[in-house]
Design a binder for these strands. Structure first.
Lengths: 340, 340
DNA sequence: ACGGCTCGGGAAAACGTTCTCCGAAGACTG
DNA sequence: CAGTCTTCGGAGAACGTTTTCCCGAGCCGT
């Protein structure tokens, strides 16, 4: 009923604590018959190792801290799911901290997690600049992988989608389907996703339409901004709205709908991320799907590597290729609206 | 740089380990001058207590396990956020486990968390019946609070929304706005939310429309089922579709839209939970908002109580009142569609 | 002045592991 | 057959806390 320890198993199997430990951990060969006795006793007594003691002795908790800005951002749940599954598969547990988009809270959580002796940290930084100090300090203590957003150059390993390639996919698709007057609705923060998507649009849109790089409206990554931005850009009657994420795109669609604009007949709308909502809005949002499973797998792999193979090797910045998902919001101009 | 321990602080402040521990933990009065010296030394050295050692000695990790079926269910992120914030405010950390709707995985995660010596567990059970054994076993070892869904009677403390009251709010609203031919699209699982909402509809709908309790279609809690269910029930031309959650409602809206039905003119649609998407669909979904912040607060309070005050007291089943959120999908039959 | 206090402080025993030594065999080698 | 390796097993020292003792000094009461 109460906790059964190595000592109990040792007594029950008539050998020493050390032997039991060796059998159960497999750290050193042990005589076949003894091993069998020990295993039987452990099984019979329902022995469960005490992670606290193990952590104290071996200075490893088997625990990874996951720090993110806002779990309610609809892109994160799928990522968190993939990450926890990948880490659990490696026998690690995940300590979750939501820091509410506040770099100060983020720093506190990171410090707390370090105090709890996490073996490593997975961080989606809240802010490119104001998160840097805490992240850099933490990265000096444990392996740390940045995800989704960067945090300045050279701070830590990072895994993210290739925003530039994603934006190129969108622009190519729009060009191929006859769009010519393109307009960007983005976010002005310093968060790397915002900056990269902005930059990729600026770099790629010129080929499609010389005036396009100039048609840019910047706000934040929210539905509300998507709605408001349409009021700014719609008077120019663009035939495509490239949004920096799906929330913005959904807001834009709502406002366009209310203004009576025909999507995709008059104007195409695209998003980024492929959050679940993107498939469910009417019309469905054409978007760039982040390779969530691979992002998680790469992050887990990188972490495992840093944790086992010493922390050798140069800092790595892994960029994964995204995939274009075409939905009704950008079907070709000439085509009739396809049935939902 | 490396870890600084109590011993280091003791040496630096010229007193014993025991005294340092007492000062820092405040477990026993210590001379003012000594205390000051100790605190200064701890500060200067950047002392951070080792949670593993503390956990080993005091048999409490300051950690709570949070086990849920699917973080990607859009109702959970807000709940998880509120829970983590409430627990962090109490100085506890949260170990997250997503069990992918699989009771076997759930049982494994629970066992692992117990092995990691969590002080308590917060569980949203995957299945009313097949989760019971693991939950009951865990509840015998640590304080355990069930959330959102039940797990059979008498298993553990629980905190959830009052599904019956929520369904009554919906039915009253529909009655007050002139709906008469009501139809229920629900889920047939044994999950308590499914059963309670189903039961509440059956109990309350008769007052509105004697035939209503019979008009019921059961599937699962998904958008796909919402779409499919409309095909079953729409031929009867009800003037209100009561859906067991928002995902079903959104699916129903999509299919109704495709069928050319006028919502809310011809037919009202209601959901349950008030997930973020419910406000963003077109039309917005009238729904029952779960008091997420209060649910989290109550769960945290209950846990704290069990953890401090011994585990005295009878088992508690807390039910919180929900709130009706009226959106465009159910504006009165006679009214014109209001501008979004 | 002396037995009881409280009060500030230290030594040391836990807590349950892992891991480094050691020792006692037996199995080789020469 | 003496010596040197392996192999299996135990004793016991860590790991960094918390906590239980215990001790000495001051202070009160009588």
């Amino acid at each position: 009923m109460a906790d059964v320890t190595l000592k109990d198993v040792a007594r029950a199997s008539g050998c020493s604590i050390a032997t039991v430990s060796r059998v159960l951990a497999g750290t050193r060969p042990v005589g076949a018959e003894t091993a069998h006795r020990v295993r039987a006793a452990a099984e019979a007594l329902g022995y469960r190792p005490n992670h606290a003691a193990r952590a104290l002795r071996s200075r490893a908790t088997g625990t990874v801290g996951l720090v993110l800005p806002q779990i309610t951002n609809p892109f994160y749940p799928t990522l968190v799911r993939a990450l926890t599954h990948a880490l659990h598969a490696d026998g690690r547990a995940v300590l979750l901290a939501d820091c509410d988009d506040d770099p100060a809270a983020e720093a506190e959580h990171i410090a707390d997690l370090l105090g709890r002796r996490v073996d490593a940290l997975l961080v989606i930084p809240a802010d490119e600049e104001r998160s840097r100090a805490a992240v850099a300090a933490a990265a000096a203590r444990v392996p740390l992988v940045l995800m989704d957003r960067g945090c300045g150059p050279g701070v830590a390993d990072s895994v993210a989608v290739d925003n530039t390639a994603g934006m190129a996919l969108v622009l190519d698709h729009l060009a191929a389907t006859g769009r010519r007057t393109v307009c960007f609705i983005g976010a002005d923060g310093t968060a790397s996703a915002a900056a990269e998507r902005r930059g990729a649009y600026a770099a790629g849109a010129g080929a499609l339409d010389p005036g396009a790089p100039g048609r840019v409206a910047l706000g934040d990554f929210s539905v509300e901004w998507g709605r408001a931005a349409v009021d700014q850009v719609w008077p120019a009657r663009p035939d495509a709205l490239v949004c920096a994420n799906d929330l913005i795109a959904i807001g834009a669609l709502q406002r366009l709908h209310r203004l009576g604009a025909d999507v995709p007949g008059e104007v195409a709308v695209t998003g980024f991320d492929d959050i679940p909502m993107a498939a469910l809005s009417a019309p469905g949002v054409t978007t760039v799907r982040q390779p969530v499973a691979q992002l998680a797998a790469e992050a887990a792999r990188l972490l495992a590597q840093r944790l086992s193979g010493g922390d050798a090797g140069p800092q790595r910045a892994i960029r994964l290729a995204p995939e274009l998902v075409v939905r009704e919001s950008s079907t070709p101009k000439r085509a009739a609206r396809t049935p939902a």
